[in-house]
Every structure is written in structure tokens, then in C-alpha cells.
Computed example of a mutant assay.
Amino acid sequence: MKSPSLWMSSIGLSSLAVAAASGWFAATMFAGPATSKEPRFPQLTMDQLDARQKPLGEQVMKVSSVGLAGPYNPMMRSPVLGQKLFDLFAYLRWDTSVPVKLNEFAIIIIGRQWRSQVEWFAHAPLAQKAGLSPQIIADLKANKRPANMAEDEATVYDFVTELTTTHKVSDATYARAKKIFNDQQIVDLTAVAGNYVMVAMLLAMAEESTPPGKEAPFKPGEP
């Protein structure tokens, strides 16, 4: 079992956290949260949780570096779903068959596509810690196909990008993946990408952003 850190420190006992490649949606669709209105989901604290929410909240607090913030805040509003997601992401983060470096790379590919401040803030450091080159991370953040990727990294980038932007995987891309990954790994890679699409959607809907005092990775007007 891989040990939790940062966001999946923030995402889960087993975690949470979950799309789409460069520039496939206009940046304006992912504008930051409005500042002139009440938050869509006021931040919950442990003492505000009811009997249905508290068991999940206690699990989250054991592993989360951001407490009940990020995706956990809206998840608490649907505690049965939240618990099932928490358990699913335990596998997708800590027990997946995909090597951690490539798993985190897939996550930040999704985070970049969605310009998800929280996903990038949480997972770019985890990807680097797992061994992904800082230059690859920088290229991805700049909305470019990273240069100098190893074969497995390039395969993950092309597989995830093609699936999320064209809604299919070509025979050529699938054949490349089969040279590197077994069937379980291909299924797990697909699932982690789709999972972080869902997380990005949840964060966008709830207008969740980076923790207070932390700089947002993506600035207004950037692609």
C-alpha cells in the first residue's frame, strides 16, 4: 500500500480525488470561484456534522492535510455517496496496479485539462515526488505536450489525452499501451482518469479552490 501524501493525504484513508488535454475547453469555462457571493457549500467543521456525516468525517480527518476542505466539503452533503467514493479512491490511489509516478501523471493530465486548481495544487507535488520530471510537469502546466518523456510516460499521456478528448482510444495507442501495461493496469489507468474527471467536476461545481493563503496554480487569462 502506498503511503498517503498531500492531496490524498487530503483525499483519503484511502483517499479521494479524479479530465479531459490541452485546450479542449475554453479557459473561461473554468473561471475561479466568484468572490462577491456566498460559497455554494459553506465549509463544514467536524462539530457541524450530523450522525450520517460524522463517520466519514472521522475517516477523512485521519488522513487529510486539508481537513474537510477540497472535494470532501461537497461530498459531506451526500454522505452515502461520499463514503462509497472514499472507499473507491482508496484503491485508485493506494492499491492501484498502475505505478505511482504514472498514476499521478494521469491525475495531473486531467487536472490540467480542467484547469482544476485543487487537483493541480495537490497532485503536481506528488507527481514530482514520485519521480516525474519537473520539466514534464512544467510543460504540462504550460499547456504543451511534454518533451523528453520516457516511453511509459508518453504512452500514459497519449492514452489519457486521446480517451478524454476524442472519447476513444485508437488501435495504435492501445497497442502501445499493451506493450507496457497488462490488462488490469489498462483498466486501472482508465478508471483513475475518469475518477479525476469526476473530482474535477465536483470541485468546479462547488467552486472549491486552493487552501486559504495558497496561490492558485492557474492564473486568469492563461490557456
Rank of each mutant, 00 (worst) to 15 (best):
S10N: 07
A206S: 15
I137R: 00
S10T: 12
Q135V: 11
R52N: 13
V100C: 03
Q43Y: 04
A19D: 07
A124D: 02
G131E: 09
A175E: 15
T190R: 10
G82H: 12
F218E: 03
N195W: 04
E162Q: 14
V169T: 13
P212G: 02
S97H: 07
E38C: 04
Y196S: 02
T155G: 01
T165S: 14
T96P: 00
E162N: 08
F86M: 13
K129Y: 01
A177C: 06
I110E: 02
T35K: 14
G57N: 04
W7H: 07
Q128G: 04
E38L: 13
S65A: 13
P74W: 13
A69F: 08
Q135H: 11
G82P: 04
A31W: 03
I109D: 00
G23L: 04
K37V: 13
D50R: 06
G32I: 03
F25Q: 11
A206L: 08
E151R: 15
S22G: 10
G70K: 05
R77E: 13
P146F: 05
F105H: 02
R52H: 13
P4S: 09
E38I: 08
F218P: 00
M46A: 15
M198I: 11
I109R: 00
E58D: 15
P134K: 08
M1Y: 09
S209V: 02
M205H: 11
A150Q: 13
S3K: 15
Y72P: 00
E38M: 10
V187M: 08
G23W: 01
G57A: 10
R176Q: 15
Q83A: 14
A31N: 12
A27H: 13
V18F: 09
K129C: 00
F89M: 10
L189C: 04
G213N: 08
K141T: 01
G12N: 09
V118C: 03
F181Q: 09
K179S: 03
L16K: 12
L132M: 12
S133M: 03
T173F: 03
A206C: 05
V156I: 09
L92T: 05
F41C: 08
A69K: 14
A51G: 06
L88Q: 13
V18Y: 04
Y174R: 13
L81P: 02
I180E: 02
N182C: 08
E207R: 12
I11M: 10
V98Y: 02
N103G: 01
A206W: 08
P125D: 02
F89A: 08
S15Y: 06
V63A: 14
K141L: 01
L44A: 13
P55I: 12
K144T: 00
L6M: 09
I180L: 15
T35L: 10
V169D: 04
G131L: 05
V197P: 00
F89V: 02
G213T: 11
L81A: 15
A216P: 01
S5A: 12
R40D: 05
E208V: 12
N103A: 07
D139V: 10
A216R: 15
D183H: 06
S170G: 08
L68E: 05
T161K: 01
F121W: 15
K168L: 11
S64E: 02
N143Y: 05
K141S: 00
Q117H: 04
F86P: 00
Y157H: 05
L202D: 03
K84I: 12
M198F: 14
S10H: 06
I136Q: 00
L49Y: 09
A204Q: 14
D188I: 03
